[in-house]
Write a protein that binds this DNA or RNA. Structure first.
Lengths: 366, 366
DNA sequence: AGGAACGTTGACAGCGCTACCAGCAACGAC
DNA sequence: GTCGTTGCTGGTAGCGCTGTCAACGTTCCT
């Protein structure tokens, strides 16, 4: 009679159905919507599947149902600590769900992102997580037209494609500068690398805060398109110092740069924070154990990833969030590297405390 | 007459074939083995596909061909810098190929690994990359039985399941200790965290080198199962110092710990390398710009990932490597933190120079 | 009692592609 | 001229699953 097994010896749904004494379609329903079955059949199918060690064939399912159970994730870098934390959150949230993660690296290129997006969309993903809010017009059009939920992560801005979760890099930078002013620092330099859109917005925040205080000077800003590194932090700081020897603080666009600045100060025997205060961005783990401990702006990267994936999965399954845009905030973590310069410290940038917003979430490390 | 388009408006192979004036099967062949077509048909299909913007339906292909074009990758951690470098190599190598990467995180649990392996294998991956050589018996049996190429990465050992690419953590640790002895250090402590199999083998290498020199003392070893961090490095070093105040060097199982030790030394005003020498492991980027610069054992992580994926893809396509086991070696990068203690330095551990092996490969950073 | 409404189940017909094998032309060997 | 042999092409028949819709039994309402 008919074959009982697929060529490869794999168990098919039909075998499970036969053992359970139901039709294949009923068995199929068990895996997709168990509540639709009577309790009796449900248990029968369940034990039959377990007995045979049945594993659904995802390709067949995808072909028949015209959709996949794949969540596409587009991030700019695999190396950057920031993204590995986000990714960990995404993977953690997807675990236990039926969805699997398909990851691609845009290498900070929106053209590459557009290409990958086209590829992803052609396979009808269940949902999509994309980084940032600066897509090409073409990408944006594809995202708008996509018939799956989409979450933009890492920052927040006007008109989300669908959902959005992140924080304001602009406000975060302003808060960092406000903190430095509160501590009595006035001539604050900016060191930035890679200059992706988020770093650019941190620079914008720095510029606006400095202008508010009447202290802005283009010569205080050193940036490069080169990928960030600790060594680069030292090199950029060296440039800055040559230009502005009487600078009294540096705001670094990320913690690697900050660590490089710290090392460079040590090399040059510049006292931190005595002569130069340092503030980083992201609050990576090492910032708290450096000597001196380094002030940084803490961001909820793991939570961002985890929440993004959770929201996305909920949306895929029809449970859309009340609020499509979620601001996870940030917090200036004040440490030794930026402590008070003099006693007459008074805020020169307004709204410092108010800009310091952070939703309480448990931090989790691998 | 029949439908010209799929419901979703997507272009199918049939449309391409029709436009090209060939049968669907010929069009299909074009995408899998263009050489099998006559030049005339090949160009006809090619331009038809381009004109229609055809994208193959991977689910249908997988269902019909009974195999997927997915490479499964199992790694223990998404956060660890070491794995992000390896991953970058894997993704870089897969780019441009027809294969996509399916990543899963075992969280350093071989039981979790076994579970994921079962899941992966059920979907018939084109190939598999697994971390390390310590699988459960069950996992090993599944891997042996799998009908796809497999690469084990991160270390090398006896009986590979299939292919293997990595280096000897044992030898690398021995080389690090040998270097310290050459520089005149004698009482060398060991600081390790997480204690996964590879860290354990580094410890074994340390122990054997210390025993060879007649200097081994269990009290010089401090380890913990806790995940690694910079802060932890400082804490473990503090323990070690309390136990053995006259220790003159520390070998750290990774660079984060080494950085923590450096900061702790600074905090306690212990001169490095004057009073304590420090050697790390992995040679992360910051090691070269710390003050003092930190000695470390360089490993070819990016190349390991890239080569593993390349070998795997070649094997999938029938081009098996002459050598299934590839040793990528390591190199002790000597820096200030371990420079000579006295002038009468002489090797106390043999084979120091010989153990220092490294295949010349271009290092690439993101 | 009749019928609407609901919950549960099954039959059928593909999803878009490729494995398999057959067919056909062109060519050379005998 | 016959018979392979090779190179290319096409027809047929699924791959394993699910969408759709119809059918059934039961309950509840009027």
């Amino acid at each position: 009679m008919g074959r009982k097994r697929t060529k490869s010896g794999k168990i098919r749904l039909a075998e499970v159905a036969e053992l359970a004494g139901v039709s294949p379609i009923t068995a199929s329903r068990f895996f997709r919507n168990p509540e639709a079955l009577s309790v009796a059949k449900r248990t029968r199918v369940e034990s039959a599947a377990k007995e045979l060690g049945y594993v659904p064939n995802l390709a067949a399912r995808a072909l028949a149902s015209q959709r996949t159970e794949v969540i596409g994730v587009l991030i700019p870098s695999l190396t950057n600590n920031v993204f590995s934390d986000v990714l960990r959150g995404i993977y953690d949230a997807s675990e236990g769900s039926r969805y699997s993660i398909q990851l691609s690296n845009t290498r900070y290129s929106i053209l590459q992102e557009e290409k990958l997006l086209r590829l992803f969309l052609a396979q009808k993903p269940a949902g999509l997580i994309v980084t940032g809010i600066d897509q090409t017009a073409e990408s944006r059009a594809m995202l708008q037209a996509a018939d799956c939920p989409i979450v933009q992560i890492m920052e927040i801005g006007p008109d989300p494609v669908d959902m959005m979760i992140g924080f304001s890099h602009y406000d975060a930078a302003r808060a960092a500068i406000a903190h430095l002013f509160e501590q009595g620092h006035r001539k604050v330099g900016f060191v930035g690398a890679r200059m992706d859109p988020r770093v650019q917005r941190r620079l914008d925040g720095y510029v606006s805060a400095m202008k508010d205080a009447g202290s802005f000077d283009q010569r205080l800003v050193v940036t490069t398109a080169t990928p960030t590194s600790v060594t680069l932090g030292g090199a950029l700081f060296t440039d800055l110092l040559a230009r502005e020897p009487d600078m009294d603080a540096v705001f670094c666009a990320n913690d690697d740069l900050a660590l490089g600045v710290l090392f460079e100060c040590r090399r040059r025997e510049i006292a931190v924070p005595g002569q130069i205060a340092i503030v980083g961005f992201n609050d990576l783990e090492f910032m708290a154990s450096a000597v001196p401990t380094l002030t940084s702006v803490r961001t909820n990267r793991y939570e961002m990833g985890k929440t993004a994936a959770t929201m996305l999965i909920n949306a895929i399954e029809g449970r859309r969030p009340e609020q499509p845009v979620l601001d996870l905030g940030f917090k200036v973590i004040e440490r030794q590297s930026s402590s008070a310069r003099r006693s007459d410290s008074r805020p020169a940038v307004s709204g410092a405390a108010a800009a310091n917003k952070m939703i309480a979430l448990p931090s989790s490390h691998d």
